[in-house]
Design a protein around this nucleic acid. Structure first.
Length: 699
DNA sequence: TTTTGAAGTCTCTCC
DNA sequence: GACTTCAAAA
């Protein structure tokens, strides 16, 4: 794929030859029907592990064989990594010609199209992309300038405002209705909130800023409004075939985009599984996939039900789990992989014991020949793996973590990026504000004044240098002017230019970091990593866009330390595990209130989404699945005490019957005191053999 | 006006 | 535990 600086798996440089693809021999009947479908809309309903990716890959191969130029095929996936993998597999089928297939996420594709067609539609081509944190910061500016935040009453915070705004854009639900549903306490502020949103929108336009939602919104407008019809037709004419993966996780805006993209032809293939819809919190709606046959008349529908991934006992458990779901397409997955043992349901006494069990069992499987990279530990939220990470580090087991907080979201990394961003877009108010506040002697007022002064001069490059800073800010102002001048003198593209710019920034910034933050060393290391990433990019604008649209999800994505050949264990949130599979999967913290999370308990739809999420997590397993839950939870939030926990409500008596019970009865050693390194290793393996109760009944 | 420290709040999932 | 808000000191 042409857009990617760091492919996964490693790019094959040599030109590969096409071979004759034998669709009949390599696919089952349903898969073949889907892969070789002719013209017109196609819906593939594909249960977990039914060869969805395989089918899509073969469909791409088929289209190319049929003479569709690869560059006129658009493959939209949920992550860039997914697109890369599929295209790498397609290449093995039809040769290197498939490299020119266009692939990526909706947002990434929107970005590409907007850079190219935006200027004709009134959007300057050099816009800056706001990530979620930036968007919230800008919302904060709108919030304070609109003068609506009454001191006496609680007005929604920037994060809440942004959530409501984003939800409105992605779902097209009126703001008032969103407030009623989710934030009844803020209904009285509806008018003021509308004012803030108006300011936010105007501010983005005036500052040449584009948030994630705008990427989709502008794309939709380009392909469907009358004024842009000429451009819309040209964009639509770019592709002959459009394929969309994970369709159950698209929202109405994305459905509109696809509709517009298919104006000239109706060659749209969508693949999804309603049972795996887990992004409603982001505006995704299951209606897209359910209504597809009505929306696209004459659409062919193919359902894939034969599971090739998991053993029958694992499938029995997951089928039971999802059978409790409220609303779903009924499909019963089956497999010919009849062997294998029942999945384990492991009760640990407390978190340390859960951790030790997982690590010991992983080592045991490893000794038996399962590579670390064929195993994964999954959990509901990023922070839940903290204890496990400490233990893995102490035992010298290599791992990489997917999902959760990414280092690009860390304050100090965003600080450095702010300098680059004002160099790229002098109107980037969010970044100006951020970096001005960093400087000693400059606070909110001075920052505001400086920005207003630049605004009055229509953001002329010298405007900041001409700004008269108050005495206590003179020194900081002077240093900043010199740095920005130096950055401006540096070319914005060319080998190593971005990295050199970061070196300059750090000459000023590292000292600021040392005084402002604690735990300085790991933060400086993060900046080294940032520099290493920047080395892979030739142009500043390209670098800034790439890290907003496709932030590295793991240390291996950063291109150092480990490469993809390394044998490393994967720790992942359930969300980030979507679309992946492993020989052995451990799902930890199956505690009610943790999975499902307590927050979702008040809302039936949210509970259902949590259930599907657990389904996604468990269906990642091929041969071994262990679900663990600690019985006593040490709660630091409320008075630091132990409290009893309950098994996740999703594993009711019936579901539990599909598991074999393992109860770890030996209490863990004395509670771990802060600062103490965890090195203790209990022989859980011996314990397991002793305690093991095959085929046990309900809890 | 800025900085700093303390009390208070909210705790997620991701492009 | 990290971030926001608020109050007091510099």
């Amino acid at each position: 794929m042409s857009t990617d600086p760091r492919p996964y798996p490693p790019r094959q440089r040599e030109v590969t030859q096409r071979r004759e693809v034998d669709f009949a021999a390599e696919l089952n009947e349903k898969q073949r029907a889907a892969a070789t479908h002719g013209e017109g809309p196609l819906l593939i309903v594909a249960g977990a592990g039914t060869g969805k990716t395989r089918t899509l890959v073969y469909r791409v191969a088929h289209l190319i064989e049929q003479g569709v130029p690869p560059s006129r095929i658009l493959l939209l996936t949920f992550t860039r990594r997914a697109a890369q993998e599929m295209l790498a597999r397609a290449e093995r089928l039809v040769g290197s010609t498939s490299r020119s297939v266009q692939g990526g996420t909706f947002h990434g594709t929107a970005h590409r199209l907007l850079r190219r067609f935006g200027p004709e539609a009134g959007l300057p081509g050099d816009f800056t992309i706001l990530d979620q944190g930036d968007a919230e910061d800008l919302m904060q500016l709108s919030r304070s300038s609109a003068g609506v935040a009454d001191k006496t009453k609680r007005f929604p915070k920037k994060g809440t405002l942004h959530h409501v705004y984003s939800r409105h854009v992605n779902t097209e639900i009126p703001v008032g209705a969103i407030l009623r549903d989710e934030y009844a306490q803020f209904i009285e502020f509806e008018d003021d909130i509308a004012k803030v949103f108006a300011d936010y929108t105007a501010r983005k336009q005036a500052r040449n800023l584009v948030d994630y939602d705008d990427l989709l919104l502008y794309w939709a407008m380009l392909v469907e409004t009358d004024a842009a019809r000429a451009i819309g037709d040209r964009i639509g004419a770019l592709y002959d075939q459009i394929l969309v993966d994970e369709y159950q996780d698209t929202n109405v805006l994305q459905a509109r985009i696809l509709k517009g993209m298919c104006r000239v032809h109706r060659n749209l293939t969508v693949v999804g599984d309603d049972a795996q819809s887990i992004y409603a919190f982001r505006g995704a709606t299951i209606r897209n996939i359910l209504d597809f046959p009505r929306e696209y008349h004459g659409a062919a529908v193919v359902t894939l039900e034969e599971n090739y991934r998991s053993t029958q006992p694992i499938l029995d458990a997951t089928n039971l789990l999802i059978s409790r779901a409220e609303e779903r397409f009924t499909k019963e997955l089956y497999t010919r992989r009849t062997g294998g043992e029942k999945p384990w349901l492991v009760t640990a006494q407390d978190e340390p014991q859960q951790t030790r069990f997982v690590v010991d069992r992983i080592l045991e499987l490893h000794e038996e020949g399962t590579p670390l990279r064929e195993m994964a530990v999954l959990f509901r939220a990023g922070y839940m793996s903290a204890d496990l990470e400490v233990e893995l580090t102490a035992r010298g087991i290599p791992f990489e973590k997917w999902g959760g907080l990414k280092f690009l979201e860390a304050a100090h990394v965003k600080d450095v990026l702010a300098f680059l961003r004002v160099s790229e877009n002098p109107r980037d108010e969010v970044s100006w504000y951020r970096l001005l506040l960093l400087m000693p002697g400059i606070g909110e007022t001075t920052a505001r004044n400086a920005i207003d002064a630049m605004l009055a001069r229509t953001w002329a490059p010298e405007a900041f240098a001409d700004f008269t800073a108050p005495p206590r800010a003179r020194e900081a102002h002077g240093a900043l002017v010199r740095l920005l001048d130096a950055l401006r003198a540096e070319p914005a593209s060319g080998d190593g230019s971005v990295s050199r710019a970061i070196v300059r920034i750090r000459a000023l910034y590292d000292d600021i970091l040392r005084t402002r933050y604690d735990r300085v060393e790991p933060r400086l290391a993060d900046l080294d990593r940032l520099q290493a990433i920047a080395d892979g990019f030739g142009a500043r604008a390209e670098f800034l866009a790439a890290i907003s649209l496709d932030p590295p999800a793991s240390s291996s994505d950063l291109g150092f330390g480990s490469d993809s050949e390394d044998d490393v264990l994967v720790l992942s949130t359930a969300h980030s595990a979507k679309g992946r599979e492993w020989d052995a999967v451990f799902l930890i913290w199956a505690v009610d209130g943790w999975f499902p999370m307590a927050r979702s308990l008040g809302d039936d739809d949210q509970i259902e989404e949590e259930r599907r999420l657990m389904y996604v997590a468990m269906t990642r397993a091929r041969d071994h699945l262990a679900v663990t839950f600690p019985f006593n939870v040490y709660d630091t939030r409320r008075g630091a005490s132990y409290s009893l926990s309950q098994l996740s409500r999703f594993i009711d008596r019936g579901v539990a019957r599909a598991f074999q019970k393992v109860v770890l009865e030996t209490p863990s050693e004395a509670p771990i005191t802060p600062g103490e390194t965890v090195t203790a290793t209990v022989d859980v393996r011996a314990l397991l053999r002793a305690r093991f109760t095959p085929g046990g009944g309900a809890t």
